[in-house]
Design a binder for these strands. Structure first.
Length: 432
RNA sequence: GGGGAGAUACCAAAGCGGCCAACUGGGGCAGACUGUAAAUCUGCUGUCUUCGACUUCGUAGGUUCGAAUCCUGCUCUCCCCA
């Protein structure tokens, strides 16, 4: 199946220039997407771009990831808001390294195949480009009229925008356009891909290639990822979902995908996994018949966790999920199977408190543990109330007011897991 | 500057001498149901040594056997007229 057809059934094409398909069928082509090096890790908002590159490589074409060191310093006006922070070069290099390491999980950067992936940084060719040279060699060929016609610019010039747009931002499309020209010349790169908000910037590039080098290049954009409920994709209460396990634990990563709504899951599974059309269609059908099994979400979460992290991380995430969301014996068994590191990982961010081992071995009343020792609940009255309402669990087992903690309740010889209701966890850390 | 209204728990809003720890709605928390969803239903939502006691209704006093409720000073908010 051709690349364009592949991307089309996956719902990953928002717009494309006529003739791309033939162009791609003729020979091996090189295509690129830009990535902002604003952090030393990618987050799941970048995944669509990565998947587009991945599909390129799978289809036998050459993917190029362009780290926007230079463009990241300017800020894209088609984004919403304000001017962007300027990054210094040291941070830039560090971020670039982090990003490359993550891209390696998806793309082949090391083989001897002709379509091996490459990583470039536009800072490398922009940094020594003098202003004078730039306006003469690049600026000369693009009219301001052309630049002003872009939606991204128009929007910023209109009265809705309070801040106006700086000249720096205005030139953004020239810089991004020049990247394309540079890659066209240097690596015979003829395709640029990106989110649909990038269409204007990309076409400035194809325009430059046409006017300056009389070349032919193409733009392909994918729809911006949305969520059925209208909230922003890729964010949780605690912020971005990162690919870096230090920033977002594999468990949380797994959970993020598992919690996808039915509607979104069908869409996402096409975009974010490499499963073939038949498999996905079967899954969607099964899901419609038995939605409560949530096969789509499970498959989505599993595929992505393995792809971004590892099989082992997935297994741990599943164990952890069982502990947190199953009841009774099953959960207890899972809890016992968790090692110290996994426990700390899963319960990262839940309130913790320390108690001495002697207090536990002497027997500690549940009320005292919740209020005086743990400080998890405000008052004894509240603790009593919750206990009466059957809301308190110790190690996933519901307990009553008469419960006393003792050494039998220790997990990994170190923890006691207290819980109010389904979602509120408290970890008692037992120290000598 | 003159006149009027008001200040109640997380928010909104009842109560106007004892039956008020304070109606009701929202929010929050929990329980049931469920798909770690949505909806729905139920309970809880001042503190404590919890079948009882204690401290709360802007703030400080006063009247009274008894005050969120009546009186006085103070602080703040809103409205109307200049």
């Amino acid at each position: 199946m051709s690349l364009i057809k592949e991307l089309t059934w996956r719902g990953m094409i928002h717009d494309s220039m006529p003739g791309v398909e033939e162009h791609l069928n003729e020979a091996m082509r090189a295509g690129y997407v830009g990535v902002d090096p604003t952090a030393d890790s990618l987050h799941i908002g970048h995944l669509v771009s990565i998947m587009m590159l991945k599909h390129m490589q799978v289809a036998g074409h050459k993917p190029i990831a362009l780290v926007g060191g230079a463009t990241g310093m300017i800020g894209d006006p088609s984004g919403k808001s304000n001017e962007r922070n300027l990054l210094d070069e040291e941070t830039l290099r560090k971020n670039q390294e982090g990003i490359k390491n993550q891209l390696k999980r998806f793309l082949d950067f090391d083989s001897n195949e002709p379509n091996v992936a490459e990583l470039v940084n536009n800072y490398d060719w922009m940094k020594s480009f003098s202003f004078l040279d730039f306006i003469r060699d690049v600026g000369k060929h693009i009219t301001v009229n052309y630049m002003m016609a872009k939606d991204s610019v128009k929007k910023r010039l209109s009265s809705e925008s309070a801040d106006g747009m700086s000249f720096t931002e205005f030139t953004y499309q020239l810089v991004q356009g020049f990247d394309f020209l540079q890659l066209y010349r240097d690596k015979n790169c003829t395709i640029q891909m990106g989110g649909s908000d990038q269409w204007g910037n990309i076409t400035t590039g194809t325009e430059m290639i046409r006017r300056i080098d009389q070349g032919k290049a193409f733009a392909v954009t994918c729809p911006l990822i949305t969520k059925a409920d209208g909230s922003k994709f890729g964010k949780t209460e605690s912020g971005n979902v990162w690919l870096d396990p230090e920033k977002t634990s594999p468990y949380k990563f797994y959970q993020f995908w598992l919690n996808t709504s039915d509607e979104d899951a069908a869409k996402y599974i096409k975009i974010f996994t490499l499963l073939d059309q038949k498999t996905i269609e079967t899954l969607i059908k099964e899901h419609q018949e038995e939605p409560h099994l949530r096969k789509l979400q499970k498959t989505l979460a599993e595929e992505l966790t393995v792809m971004v992290h590892s099989k082992e991380d997935l297994d741990n995430a599943i164990i952890a999920s069982e502990v947190l969301f199953k009841k009774g014996e099953e959960a207890l068994a899972g809890l016992k199977a968790m090692n110290e590191r996994l426990i700390l990982d899963v319960f990262e961010g839940v309130p913790q408190a320390e108690v001495s081992k002697s207090e536990i071995s002497n027997g500690l009343s549940i009320i005292e543990a919740l209020v005086d020792k743990g400080g998890f609940l405000k008052s004894n009255g509240e603790a009593r109330r919750e206990l009466k309402q059957n809301a308190i669990s110790v190690n996933k087992q519901k307990v009553g007011e008469e419960k006393e903690l003792n050494t039998d309740d220790l997990i990994s010889d170190k923890f006691i897991l207290l819980q109010k209701g389904k979602k509120n966890y408290y970890l008692l850390n037992v120290v000598d």
